[in-house]
Write a protein that binds this DNA or RNA. Structure first.
Length: 830
RNA sequence: GCGGAAGUGGCGGAACUGGCAGACGCGCAGGCCUCAGGAGCCUGUGGGGGCAACCCCGUGGGGGUUCAAAUCCCUCCUUCCGCACCA
């Protein structure tokens, strides 16, 4: 028998498939289209086992779709802009372009070894001007619609990477840079933003897409919508001066005993009285310094200082002292709040510290009129609230909101935690922002006809942290497109999440030079039917790409508002020690080593077998041997029974003496084998549909174990041939190379991957004999084999006749008999 | 603190809509084959009791619903993830 030499046969078939362009997706093909997309990799230089874990099951699912009769688009590309390339330039003097392209070349080879059905002719590389020109084009479209704007704002700055970051890229309690883990600091800078907040409400709507609840929840929390009322507080002794506060509790407005402005609030200077000036300045200085240092201070005591002015409660005209305090953030709501200590824990802390009154205005059920021990946040009956006294707080909320709206005091309003997307990066290796600053004309967009604004190739990469573009005179100095005078280019580049916000559209027609993609071809392929990738992108990439698609819809470029109909998040593969893989821990698994020993098919199948795909889990080098053993068994089984004259010798016949298992007893006519074939097809089909690769492979293992048991009596017969054919077809999506080789060795016509997915006969998939569980009072007492179509009456009869059932009934009367057809009979006694 | 997910053998995990707990694989044990094996094949493998047929217990803890609970409800514990002064 031929040896299973995975390494050789995998290389052979990969070459053949590529030569035959087997994986080409054809635009406008009449078969139903299926756009299957897996997140493109960053070209770090080495294909990690984590890439395999994300991509190999995706490939299996895409291949399965194709066998199901779909015209499948399964593209790949590289997320090629980003900091590591620039850092390599600074440290080793290699140009980012060269570093990136060398890595891509290396990763292409590694990716090919996976045997995936990617269509390389559609490859997209985002650092190619052919690609990033469209980033600039989109930017201009957004600029024209007011969706891209420049503003001075306190922004997050990573001191190690020397660049600003989007809020989404600052993570954890320590507020560290998502890329390098350095704590970020705040800086006031003029930066470019994209107005994602304009779509906040739409982004909360997930109807029409099947995304995991997990991602949905993360996005909802991130957007952080809360409904409330924004109303005006006039300032005593300052006619015409007022500020607005946002509250989700207008029902508590009668309990306001102070008001707080954020220390950076623009009215602070104007309202501060001379006697308070020194304290206020000192506090502002302290607050500014503190926000510049780490903000670990959740436990920190709440403090503030009065500014000497008083706000007038619009409901009852009472005067409330105005404070500044750093627990109020300028970046949320209006940067000012009403202080209602009885009904807000933070306000209560503050009021206690400064001995402010704490009147109760919403009485908890059964309240005895005494001061509350802690802030009461729940609903109750309104008290001390003028004409609203006596209403339920729920009702009072609405009535006070109505009152404020009628009198022009305030309006109902939604507030969001979501901020606009800061896209400026003070780095070289990204898309130049196509803007020119002219001393006469101001901010001028680069005309579309002048695109792309290319990155200069001769930039210098110095370890100073200064952006190379800023120091590049040839790039920076330019002419104003409007007046022709001397002008300067914007030297910041775009966040690389811009690239990934629309790459799925570029794959549709990756070489179109006239537009981001061909709308005709787009109408055929779009949107993405299935997207797969890690959950770490939940509030970054996955939120941005939804936003981008809605903008594209509003630009008339696509006829839908959601980029990906279904999303699946795979888990994370861990090191053998159960820890996250890292070089420093020394637990990194190198896929290439396994590919070169046991083959890509084994690595693929093992990663799918390890557990549910969404779960991830530790790598186990013994576990992979088990899967390799399985493929070896498949190989031997197919060869042993297809190579003529090799079966039925005395050696294999020996097993027969032991006697078949009960379920296989009557398998001589091949019926039982047929049943196994069909039930396995059913199981694998259903499992692949839901990405349950682990149980699909387990079912195939059971099938093979069964086939080994019966092969001496079955091999050569028609049901056997069907079983072997089905087995190979069912394996094809997951282990494409061995399936192709076995398919060829069976004399079937090339290619196994162009065959239809086997269908099953529901009747055959159902067993002829089923195990009926017999219970007495809910305890299993016996199991009997019965024909599958048994009537309930007959089942009852058989149960009552059963010797063990009778024994355990112990002479008691039958109270009830529960029958679950084909499964169990439970005899309940009195 | 708020929000989410999850707790099943020595390990990874399986179990449709409440109906045989532990499929499949790893590991372990015994056997066969072999000059040899860390290769291959076969058998066994949740815990406890029994010579055995068999019996009892068992899905994080406690309680409940039900003829029947890993699955549904209540409660507590643990772990992981996200957000965190968001007014």
């Amino acid at each position: 028998m031929k040896r299973y030499d995975a390494v050789t046969l995998e290389a052979k078939w990969q070459t053949r498939w590529e030569k035959d362009r087997l994986h080409e997706a054809r635009d406008f093909d009449p078969r139903p289209k299926f756009y299957f997309l897996t997140m493109y990799p960053y070209p770090s230089g080495d294909l990690h086992i984590g890439h395999w874990y994300a991509m190999a099951p995706s490939d299996a699912a895409a291949r399965w779709r194709r066998m199901q009769g779909n015209n499948v688009l399964f593209p790949i590309g590289f997320d090629a802009f980003g900091l590591p390339a620039e850092n390599a330039a600074i440290q080793h003097g290699i140009h980012p372009y060269k570093w990136t392209m060398d890595n891509i070349a290396r990763m292409r080879r590694q990716l090919r070894s996976m045997g995936a059905m990617w269509e390389w002719s559609r490859e997209v590389v985002t650092c190619d001007p052919e690609y990033y020109v469209w980033n600039q084009w989109f930017f201009l479209k957004m600029y024209n619609r007011g969706l891209a704007y420049r503003a001075l704002a306190p922004v997050d700055w990573c001191p190690k990477d020397h660049t600003t970051l989007a809020r989404e890229q600052v993570v954890g309690e320590e507020r560290v840079c998502e890329r390098c883990g350095t704590p970020v600091i705040k800086k006031n800078l003029e930066q470019w933003f994209l107005k994602i907040t304009a779509y906040a409400d739409e982004l909360l709507d997930f109807s029409g897409i099947e995304w995991p609840d997990r991602v949905r929840t993360l996005q909802e929390n991130w957007i952080g919508k809360s409904l409330g009322v924004e109303f005006e507080l006039k300032v005593q002794g300052h006619p015409g001066v007022s500020f607005r506060v946002f509250t989700t509790r207008p029902d508590t407005v009668y309990g306001m005993t102070f008001a707080v402005l954020a220390p950076e609030h623009p009215l602070v200077d104007q309202l501060t009285t001379p006697d308070r000036r020194a304290d206020v300045e000192a506090y502002k200085f302290k607050a500014a310094r503190q926000s510049d240092i780490e903000r670990l201070s959740t436990e920190k005591e709440r403090d503030g200082v009065p500014i000497g002015a008083f706000a007038i409660n619009p409901m009852n005209g009472e005067h409330a002292p105005i404070f500044i305090a750093d627990y109020v953030l300028l970046t949320y709501g209006t940067g000012a709040i009403q202080g209602v200590p009885a009904h807000d824990a933070r306000d209560l802390d503050f009021a206690r510290k400064y001995q402010l009154p704490i009147p109760v205005v919403v009485a908890p059920p059964g309240w005895d009129g005494r001061p509350l021990a802690e802030a009461y946040l729940g609903e109750g009956t309104m008290v001390n609230s003028g004409p609203f006294t006596g209403l339920s707080s729920r009702e009072g909320w609405e009535r006070i909101a109505d009152y404020m709206e009628q009198r022009g005091i305030g309006q109902r309003k939604a507030s969001y935690r979501l901020h606009d997307w800061l896209i400026s990066r003070q780095r070289y290796w990204g898309t130049p922002i196509p803007i020119i600053y002219c001393s006469h004309c101001g901010t001028v967009p680069v005309p579309e006809s002048d695109l792309p604004v290319r990155l200069p190739e001769d930039a210098e990469f110095l370890p100073t942290g200064e952006s190379p573009l800023k120091l590049h005179e040839g790039f920076r100095r330019t002419r104003c497109p409007q007046c022709g005078g001397q002008a300067e280019r914007e030297t910041d580049t775009m966040d690389t999440f811009i690239d990934s916000s629309w790459y799925q559209y570029r794959y549709v027609s990756p070489h179109d030079t006239q537009r981001p993609f061909d709308p005709e071809v787009g109408r055929y392929w779009l949107p993405v039917d299935q997207y797969t990738g890690g959950v770490e992108h939940a509030v970054m990439h996955l939120l941005y790409t939804r936003f981008w698609t809605k903008v594209m819809r509003d630009l008339g470029m696509v006829g839908f508002g959601e980029p990906m109909l279904r999303l699946f998040n795979q888990g994370v593969i861990l090191g053998e020690d159960g820890e996250k893989m890292s070089k420093s821990r020394g637990n990194v698994v190198n896929p290439d080593a396994y590919v070169n020993s046991v083959g890509a098919d084994t690595v693929r199948a093992y990663l799918m077998f390890i557990g549910p795909w969404e779960g991830g889990g530790p790598w186990n080098s013994r576990g992979i041997e088990g899967v390799h053993r399985f493929l070896q068994r498949v190989w031997n089984l197919v060869h042993d029974t297809t190579e003529t004259g090799k079966r039925g010798n005395g050696e294999t016949r020996k097993h027969k003496a032991r006697g078949p298992q009960p379920e296989t007893r009557q398998s001589n006519d091949g019926h039982e084998l047929q049943h196994w074939t069909h039930k396995t097809i059913k199981k694998v089909t259903e499992d692949l549909e839901g990405f349950h690769f682990n149980t699909a492979i387990a079912a195939l293992m059971e099938f093979v174990n069964y086939m080994y048991k019966v092969k001496d009596e079955q091999a050569g017969a028609t049901p056997w041939r069907e079983a072997v054919r089905s087995l190979v077809l069912l394996l094809a999506p997951m282990t494409p190379h061995i399936a192709e080789e076995l398919w060829a060795s069976m004399g079937e016509s090339y290619s196994v991957h162009q065959q239809g997915w086997p269908s099953y006969d529901a009747t055959l998939a159902r067993a002829e004999l089923v195990t009926l569980v017999l219970q007495v009072d809910g305890k299993v007492r016996d199991r009997i084999q019965v024909p599958s179509g048994l009537t309930d009456a007959k089942a009852k009869e058989m149960a009552l006749d059963n010797e063990k059932v009778r024994r355990f009934m112990d002479g008691r009367q039958v109270a009830d008999i529960v029958v679950v057809p084909g499964r169990l009979v439970n005899v309940v006694t009195k």
